[in-house]
């Protein structure tokens, strides 16, 4: 041991620990996503509470006319974007930055298509008079799908950040691999939540 104080330079380029240690960013992301799951649990609980109260009062449920084929197509696009996102992760694990960029751009475009489809559906509902404060059904519909849409939008911004990071650094770093992987975790999570919401709102009703 040297008898002097030493300080290591700030570096984010090297693998911070051997592969025998868990990646704390990834573990932390999973723990955070589990708390996100409880956020959506509150939204599901709200949906079912208001549904049972409305049915008890003899109100028709659902009150709005939902375009199920359109929503099914939109859902398919979002589910497939999870596949393209995972192809990007497999590329980044092999260090192929160009393939990562390609698959993340594809996933971004598919996610953006989904958000666009949601906004189109909102526009149609608004023209029929369905807005957030119209009926209890409209409130729960817009709150559940709206919060999910905000999450997808956040994922789109995260894709852009990952793409920006791969262009901002001279070479692909361990940090960039980690952030690309945790963004994919988030994206898969948002996708799975949508499958639950879609099944609840459009199929079970």
């Amino acid at each position: 041991m040297l008898g002097v104080a030493t300080a290591s330079a700030i570096t984010t380029t090297t693998r911070p620990h051997g592969s025998s240690r868990p990646n704390l960013v990834q573990v932390g992301t999973i723990v955070w996503l589990s708390s996100e799951l409880m956020f959506f649990a509150a939204l599901f609980a709200m949906y079912f509470t208001i549904r049972s109260v409305s049915l008890g009062q003899g109100t028709h449920w659902p009150e709005a006319h939902l375009e199920v084929p359109f929503a099914t197509f939109n859902t398919t696009v979002l589910v497939l974007s999870s596949v393209t996102c995972q192809l990007g992760v497999w590329a980044v694990e092999r260090g192929q930055v160009k393939k990562l960029r390609f698959w993340y751009v594809v996933s971004f475009l598919m996610g953006a298509f989904f958000v666009g489809g949601q906004l189109y559906e909102y526009g149609n509902l608004a023209r029929e008079g369905h807005v957030l404060s119209h009926t209890p059904y409209d409130s729960v519909f817009f709150l559940t799908t709206g919060f999910h849409g905000l999450h997808v939008t956040g994922g789109l911004i995260a894709f852009l950040f990952i793409l920006g990071r791969t262009y901002a650094a001279k070479r692909l770093t361990y940090e960039q691999q980690t952030s690309a992987i945790v963004v994919s975790y988030y994206w898969h999570f948002v996708d799975v939540v949508w499958i639950g919401l879609f099944a609840t709102i459009y199929i079970i009703k």
Partner: peptide
């Protein structure tokens, strides 16, 4: 026979299984 709490608790199962599966997988 009450759907709200059942849903919330079912998703709590997801909360625990998600972390548990990920830790075992890692």
């Amino acid at each position: 026979k009450e759907p709200t709490g059942t849903t919330a608790m079912a998703i709590s199962v997801g909360l625990a299984l998600m972390i548990g599966y990920y830790l075992l997988f890692t």
